[in-house]
Amino acid sequence: MSIQPLPSERRPRPRIETLADLVFGLSLSIGAIGLIASSPTTQAEINSHIFAFGFTFLVLITAWIIYTTYMSVLPGETKAVTFLNVALLLLVAIVPYLLNSVELVNPSLTPSEASAVGAYASTLFGLDLTGIMLILAAFAHVISIEERNLVAPELARLFRNGRNRLAILSLATAVSIAPQFWEWTLFGVPTRLYIWYLPLISYWVGRLVRPQSRTYRIS
Score class of each variant (00 low, 15 high):
2 S>F: 07
4 Q>A: 12
6 L>Y: 13
6 L>Q: 05
7 P>W: 10
9 E>S: 14
10 R>T: 11
14 P>Y: 00
14 P>W: 00
17 E>G: 02
21 D>T: 04
24 F>P: 02
26 L>D: 05
26 L>H: 06
27 S>M: 01
27 S>G: 00
31 G>I: 06
32 A>E: 11
36 I>E: 15
36 I>K: 15
36 I>D: 14
39 S>A: 09
39 S>W: 14
40 P>R: 02
45 E>D: 07
45 E>G: 03
47 N>G: 14
50 I>L: 12
51 F>L: 02
57 F>L: 11
59 V>A: 01
60 L>E: 06
62 T>R: 02
64 W>P: 03
67 Y>H: 02
68 T>A: 09
69 T>H: 05
69 T>F: 07
71 M>R: 15
74 L>S: 08
75 P>T: 07
77 E>L: 00
78 T>I: 00
80 A>V: 11
81 V>I: 09
82 T>A: 08
85 N>A: 11
87 A>T: 08
88 L>G: 10
96 P>V: 14
99 L>Q: 06
100 N>W: 00
103 E>G: 10
103 E>F: 10
111 P>T: 09
111 P>G: 08
112 S>M: 05
113 E>P: 00
114 A>Q: 03
114 A>H: 02
122 S>R: 04
124 L>R: 08
129 L>I: 09
130 T>S: 15
130 T>D: 04
131 G>E: 06
134 L>F: 15
134 L>M: 10
141 H>D: 01
144 S>Q: 13
145 I>R: 15
148 R>W: 05
149 N>M: 10
151 V>P: 03
152 A>V: 05
152 A>N: 09
156 A>N: 03
158 L>Y: 01
161 N>K: 04
163 R>H: 04
165 R>W: 08
166 L>G: 09
167 A>L: 13
169 L>Y: 01
171 L>Q: 05
172 A>P: 06
173 T>N: 14
174 A>D: 03
176 S>T: 03
177 I>L: 05
179 P>A: 07
181 F>R: 08
181 F>V: 14
182 W>C: 11
192 R>Q: 15
194 Y>F: 15
196 W>R: 12
197 Y>W: 08
200 L>M: 11
206 G>A: 04
206 G>E: 09
207 R>N: 08
210 R>K: 12
211 P>H: 12
214 R>Q: 14
219 S>D: 05
